[in-house]
Design a protein around this nucleic acid. Structure first.
Lengths: 196, 196
DNA sequence: TGGGTATATGTCAAGATAGACCTATGTCTG
DNA sequence: CAGACATAGGTCTATCTTGACATATACCCA
């Protein structure tokens, strides 16, 4: 407890290290990767990514090379150092705290008895569709991955396996969310559905 | 767009208003309510609750009465004002943004190909058990609610309906999460399971 | 008597995050 | 030709959130 165990970075830092463990990327690329569909589990703006990369570099976990480009702005391509890889491994083995869930729609559901049922049902149905769309996206992402990665999808030491795991979580999450919205919409419309 | 539409409060503010719409509570009570099991959808420390209540009161959305107690410290019991109820309704009808998911365990899953499979499998199984325990909690919560609320559970204008909706979401979420952890653990152990 | 827990209300500092702002270049579209 | 968009890098401010610190009473248990 005496020394600073966390030493360097926030969870965002490990997200970036996890991406760089697969391939070298610029800050811009990292920010893109932190979006749909794989990066759905952790999001950050570029205004967070650039300072975090600087911190990681100061700590010796990543290093960059300046790439001069004629047709585009120059870029800094970052790669993982040995220390960075070690830090990533240590983090993987450390205890993981439960995420604190904060979901405004569920919060609204708690007060939905104060709302107009018809309007609320419309709202829930819209969200059901949104999550169904995400579900479809993740499902097609997994299909594409199968084509790309083949059997490596199921090998726990393959980078593809990580993508596979995350996509599967996304599929389960979005399916459940969409179904819940549908269920709630049906309740609000008075067409009762099955028991809890 | 000219005027400040959000006028007053953050999402936490609406969480508090939603609780106060059901019954008067002190800041301490609100903080407790923001914990298990119903408040699993939004969490805040008391250090956030007290200042937020002060802001809500300044905005005229809540009001408090000082209750002097002999056996315990005095407390301020807050109640919703008419303006507060109106603000809550307006919020319910407004668009809801998608939550930005941040889940450290899923983030680890993305890099799990770098970890020791056996250790990772143990970790995932532990999390599976944690979520299974939450699932059981929510399920028994729903059972208790059935006894307490009866048919009101299914009436969209009853406060019980809100609790019902949230619990159902919790049940679906925890079930899915637990199953995903189990699936991942099995993959890591080499005992392959069904197709995606 | 000392320590832990529950009740009750707050403040403060540090860090995380969002959203706006800023500068460039090149391409594509109306 | 103007404006939008993608690429590429950054800063800055305000707010959100956490976790520690602070204070006080009453109860229970060793």
């Amino acid at each position: 407890m005496s020394a600073r165990d966390k030493a360097i970075s926030s969870t965002l830092g490990y997200a970036l290290l996890g991406l760089l463990a697969r391939e070298e990327r610029s800050g811009y690329d990292l920010t893109q990767a932190l979006k749909n569909p794989v990066g759905y589990f952790w999001f950050a703006q570029h205004s967070q990514v650039y300072p975090e990369l600087a911190r990681l570099e100061t700590a010796g976990l990543v290093a960059h090379t300046l790439i001069e480009q004629a047709d585009r702005p120059d870029k800094k391509v970052y790669r993982l150092t040995d220390m960075g890889r070690a830090a990533l491994s240590a983090w993987l083995n450390a205890d993981t705290e439960l995420p604190r869930k904060r979901d405004e729609l569920v919060l609204k559901a708690y007060s939905i008895w104060l709302a107009d049922p018809a309007a609320a049902a419309r709202m829930m149905r819209e969200h059901a569709q949104t999550h169904a769309a995400h579900l479809a996206e993740f499902q097609s992402g997994l299909s594409n991955l199968e084509g790309e990665a083949g059997a490596a999808l199921w090998q726990p030491d393959s980078p593809w396996f990580g993508v596979h795991a995350v996509l599967r979580r996304g599929i389960g999450y979005e399916r459940e969310y969409s179904e819940w919205c549908e269920w709630l919409a049906q309740c609000l419309e008075g067409t009762e559905k099955g028991s809890p």
